[in-house]
């Protein structure tokens, strides 16, 4: 059951498990799940803060070229597949 769940999670996470790796990872994750075990549930709740929305003003970011230069493949302003 854990093995199925791990396989599915890996697929969702876009991680392909190589053959030997698949087995080993499954064992490790099974161990981790076993170790975590049954977690108790407590009733306390964490109070989260509030944030004030931001004024609607715009600025052109100055470092657009740096960002574009990091596209692995690029055509002008576009990122290429």
């Amino acid at each position: 059951m854990v093995k199925e769940m791990i396989k599915r999670a890996a697929k969702i996470a876009r991680i392909k498990l190589a053959d030997g790796e698949s087995e080993r990872l499954a064992v490790e994750l099974e161990t981790i799940f076993d170790w975590i075990g049954d977690l108790p549930r407590f009733e306390t709740k964490l109070e989260k803060e509030y944030v004030e929305p931001r004024k609607d003003e715009s600025t052109q970011y100055a470092g657009v070229e740096e960002i574009k230069s990091m596209f692995p493949k690029r055509r002008g302003d576009y990122c290429r597949i």
Binding site: A13, I15, L25
Partner: peptide
């Protein structure tokens, strides 16, 4: 790396 994969797969599974 392996530890990253472990954590990502674990986290993905736990958040399903």
């Amino acid at each position: 790396s392996p530890e990253l994969k472990r954590r990502i797969i674990l986290g993905t599974a736990i958040s399903t």
